[in-house]
Design a protein around this nucleic acid. Structure first.
Length: 491
DNA sequence: ATAGGGTTAG
């Protein structure tokens, strides 16, 4: 350009800025920003928005905010920052930015509100989501298809199907037409709430509305059918996708790997993974996790372990889910040594154990009768800041009971139940009943049984098994007969 | 005409 005697203008520089950002050279873009001023072509709003948005997308939202402080930000800059905060669920800071906008008279627009609403929906806070929706109206800003779609997503996440569908109808009544993303959100919401029939009818409605399904739509349907056990329909959607000229991407392939595994077509699943390379969309760790999960669930754990070591060839690193699936598989086939070997391997690689990992290992250990080690693992879990769930509690209570520390088990349960973080279910109670029968005697078990009934927790077949066995081993044959009389008398 | 902000699936 310079050879031709042409001077770059602000458009030229902004295109260059965008190119630098897109190639991960944000530092270079910042240098160019300085150079622009020196060359007598000062950066404009677009220049700043480009850089700040790029920083936010690469997770450098604090650096982006610092840069934004150096000038008077416009709405798109604020929106990029809000999105950056929301990406990390820093919702308070997103609200702070919104308030700052209002204070400075830079009115938040539909994009600002929709970004926050989408974030709150993802966080499961549909009530706050609706509050922002209301505030948006008060401030004279109208929702668009993004806003409605984000709210609908939030309702589905909380299982509120009726509210989600109500909002969908409201959206259409307001003259806001759904696009392919809205349809995908609706279909996914119905599928993940176990409403496959409704999902199919929406998918048909989509065609009548002349909204073309994209690869996300097909993947959502394949996954929906796969999760509901309708593998034939899942395959039909895959074929339809190919016939309609829609090229599968890595997600579509990954869903299909799951389908083939569920059909026990493991060789075909592997062939499909292999063909992904040739098709230019290489498998990811999620693809392999599906394959490994399928193999483990059918007891082919050795094969699954060999896949773990093949992943490297595909430049895929196993993640915690890979290990969790394999550990579960190994424990289920009683390959205790191999499971311990894998745990050591995880420690060497400094893999961060999560809730599922701890539950899986503790469960595996308890099946080996290693109850002391179960309690040690609970300690390790708490030290590492991993919050136990109801499964952890049941495994722990079981360990205490097996060790004969039934009173401790009951005390631990009372404490966490009082904090309302946990609600003991029939499984918990059956475990404790086992402990009482075996260590404290059947009379106390009957007292406990009555307390259970008073709380509205009703015995199932496993509970009765525990009681009957307990009575046989403790009282000879008279006990169980009395209990059986009770059952026959009441049911 | 050429540059900037938000929604979906494994």
């Amino acid at each position: 350009m310079k050879g031709e005697g042409l001077e770059p203008n602000v458009f030229t520089y902004n295109i260059l800025l965008k190119a630098l950002c897109k190639n991960g050279k944000v530092d270079g873009a910042c240098k160019l920003l300085v150079e622009m001023s020196n060359k007598g072509c000062p950066p404009d709003d677009v220049s700043y928005t480009t850089i700040i948005s790029s920083m936010c997308k690469s997770g450098e939202v604090d650096k982006a905010k610092e840069l934004a402080l150096r000038f008077e930000p416009v709405v798109p800059v604020y929106n990029a920052l809000i999105h950056g905060m929301c990406r990390e669920y820093r919702i308070q800071e997103a609200f702070d930015l919104m308030n700052e906008m209002v204070d400075k008279g830079v009115d938040p627009n539909v994009i600002s509100y929709s970004t926050v609403i989408s974030c709150l929906s993802d966080m499961g806070n549909i009530d706050l989501s609706l509050a922002v929706f209301g505030q948006m109206f008060v401030r004279g800003c109208s929702p668009n298809v993004h806003t409605f779609t984000s709210l609908i997503k939030g309702y589905f996440l909380r299982g509120r199907l009726g509210d989600a569908l109500g909002l969908w109808n409201l959206m259409i009544r307001e003259g806001v037409w759904p696009n392919v993303v809205s349809y995908n959100t609706l279909i996914h919401g119905l599928c993940s709430n176990g409403n496959m029939d409704e999902a199919i009818s929406v998918w048909n409605q989509m065609e009548r509305d002349f909204v073309r399904p994209n690869v996300t739509t097909y993947s959502t349907m394949i996954n929906g059918f796969a999760k509901s056990g309708d593998l034939i329909s899942a395959c039909e959607v895959w074929n339809k996708m190919i016939n309609c000229g829609c090229r599968p991407n890595v997600v579509a392939y990954t869903c299909m790997v799951d389908v083939l595994c569920q059909m026990s077509m493991f060789d075909q699943a592997f062939d499909l993974i292999d063909s992904m390379i040739a098709d230019g969309c290489p498998p990811t760790v999620v693809t392999f996790n599906n394959f490994i999960k399928g193999l483990c669930r059918s007891g082919r754990v050795e094969w699954a372990m060999s896949v773990l070591y093949q992943m490297e060839k595909y430049k895929c690193l196993p993640n915690i889910r890979t290990y969790n699936e394999l550990l579960d598989g190994l424990f289920k086939v009683n390959a205790f040594r191999e499971a311990c070997g894998l745990i050591r391997e995880m420690e060497e690689k400094e893999a961060e154990l999560n809730l599922v990992t701890y539950n899986t290992i503790m469960y595996g250990f308890s099946f080996q009768g290693m109850n002391q080690q179960v309690l040690q693992l609970l300690g390790k879990m708490l030290v590492n800041g991993v919050k136990p769930d109801d499964i952890t509690v049941n495994i722990t209570v079981n360990a205490y009971c097996k060790l004969g520390k039934v009173r401790t088990a009951i005390r631990v349960l009372d404490n966490i139940t009082a904090e309302k973080e946990f609600c003991a279910d029939i499984i918990t109670h059956t475990i404790v009943l086992w402990g009482i029968c075996n260590w404290l005697g059947t009379e106390e078990a009957i007292v406990y049984l009555h307390e259970m009934l008073k709380k509205g927790i009703f015995p199932n077949i496993a509970t009765w098994n525990v009681l009957v066995r307990g009575f046989f081993s403790n009282l000879g044959h008279m006990g169980p007969i009395r209990i059986l009389d009770d059952i026959l008398g009441t049911q």
